[in-house]
Design a protein around this nucleic acid. Sequence first.
DNA 1: GTGAAAGCGCTAACAA
DNA 2: TTGTTAGCGCTTTCAC
Lengths: 350, 350
Amino acid sequence: MARKAKRKTAGKLPDIRAVAAVAKVSIATVSRTMNGSPLVSERLSKRVWQAIKQLNYLPNTHARTLVSGRSRILGIIVENITNPFFPELIQSFEEIAVARGYEILVSSTNSDPAVLAACARRMLERKVDGVAVMTFGEEEPVLDQLTHRGVPIVLAEFKLDDPKASTILLDYSTGIHQAVRHLANLGHRAIAFLAGPHSLHSAITRENDFRAAMQAAGLPVQKKWIIECDHMLKGGVAGFGQLRKLATRPTAIVCSNDMTAIGVLRAAYMEGLRVPQDLSLIGLDDIDFAEFTLPPLTTIRLSRVELARAAFNALRAQIEDAGNPKLQREFLVSTSLVVRGSTAAPPAPA
Amino acid sequence: MARKAKRKTAGKLPDIRAVAAVAKVSIATVSRTMNGSPLVSERLSKRVWQAIKQLNYLPNTHARTLVSGRSRILGIIVENITNPFFPELIQSFEEIAVARGYEILVSSTNSDPAVLAACARRMLERKVDGVAVMTFGEEEPVLDQLTHRGVPIVLAEFKLDDPKASTILLDYSTGIHQAVRHLANLGHRAIAFLAGPHSLHSAITRENDFRAAMQAAGLPVQKKWIIECDHMLKGGVAGFGQLRKLATRPTAIVCSNDMTAIGVLRAAYMEGLRVPQDLSLIGLDDIDFAEFTLPPLTTIRLSRVELARAAFNALRAQIEDAGNPKLQREFLVSTSLVVRGSTAAPPAPA
DNA sequence: GTGAAAGCGCTAACAA
DNA sequence: TTGTTAGCGCTTTCAC
């Protein structure tokens, strides 16, 4: 008997039954009201909302998820939350998702496949409705875990042959061609490229696009001037160091991302090299910082907002339009050159 | 009858019953095994784990949460994920939390109380076990929502008179005193302070500590040289602009955070002012970028790792040691000056 | 339109 | 040590 009494006693947070009791309706009606079912009469709906307010009731998402099978949680896995590109991406993604009634679960892998696997597993346990995999490479094997269980995913730049996987194609080519042409127009012929880690699809794509752009501009591609870095500040410093050791040196450097470029900026400064007078420099991403470096960085913009929106839309389509055979599964995000202060004509030969 | 058949059919993900069936034990034994109960014999435990592996079974956290009342999710609310200080903090917090079996839910408020309220609400709905509120101010009213429902929280720098609330005290004073003394030793007497927004406790504390440090160093505090900024890059530019308009100008600037200092660096450069020859500059936080600015930024380090650890420990104590009357509810994180290249002796008077 | 009732997958008494 | 069973709070048939 003490058992039954419990139900009535305080201490417990209000549940749907409490609301139903106050509103003098059934719990089904409360549920329907909260979920915006058109079947509920206005009279009852009003009573329900009032009871909800009065009790300060909050629905339990776990119970909801358990029965409905949908969590309204979206995962977003990024390569490295410490690279400002990603927080900016996460921010946009979160804004869009929250506005549409989704929660997000963020994970950063630091390019470690084991971490990725753990993330995927945790997201599976949390029953995410979809995952945006913004790691830009190295991910395929693990991702099967997700798609095999029917969880929609969206990848940047990599097509997975699975109906549950969508792809965001990044058109680096346009931006990189613009960058190389910009440099060529300024008079540069000796242009280096500090690439990202080859474990990333995106890094390889960017590098290939650079080669293509050089060719298109009729410029020679020097093998020694294409150096694999790590997309981090330190990598830029190291890459620049390697370049300096060479007998013949480039007059301009295109970097696979802004962090690398900022590292170069720092390294060049330490060596007494002036940017852009002695060396022209172009980044990629256009993170917020790019505008605040010394000099402000000329860079190839990759819009986080566009990317986030594409990722969300891809997922939403998969989730809410599941049956549709004509589902859009490919999205395109473009890039374009932003000219600031880190590029100029090459120094006159000595 | 069709109903019953369903249970056996494929399509469904394996649940605890499936595991029990394969292992030929009861579901209770499966549950106990997964949760590491010492009651399970090794013989059965082995069978269970094998079945789990065989079926590729993943427990449903929502079901778990629903019945146990604990979600093993920790919320972390930051002021602005776009300020690199916070991703670095989140990264540490996540690492610690995941290692201890917790998931994290991240939210960024952009200092908007309405957003904070929405975050708190969503976290309540997701039944988080605790929340680290790393917004550094403006938060009290909303936070009651959390504590009233028995959710432990930990605040930076602000004591809430609630048994469920813990506090992390940040000892800015030490670092700021070191900074001012460092400047004074170099010969500076005219030192400005670019403060953070007064809506933040931390900003006010930092400002007060600056005043105290100036006094302690026997230096005059000029009202006009204390300017409220916004802790963002742009704010630093603006604050520097205001300083430049003054008839008498400082020879050194201490900033309430690194972002502000980096903004100043940029603005000074645009005006042809050299740092540190013409102007000395000190930041606060020591974000990863600080080492890579031109010149490298002298700054007051606030360890994200320490802060994250303190936040996690505070929460864990509240959650897992709930009953304990001798719970530690105050934690201290220290700061200290890191001298790099943005400080030097003041220019000789003209 | 509304309500009654059957679970969603799991944990935690309690019984054996 | 192991199994049985009653819910956790909600959505969703299915009746009415």
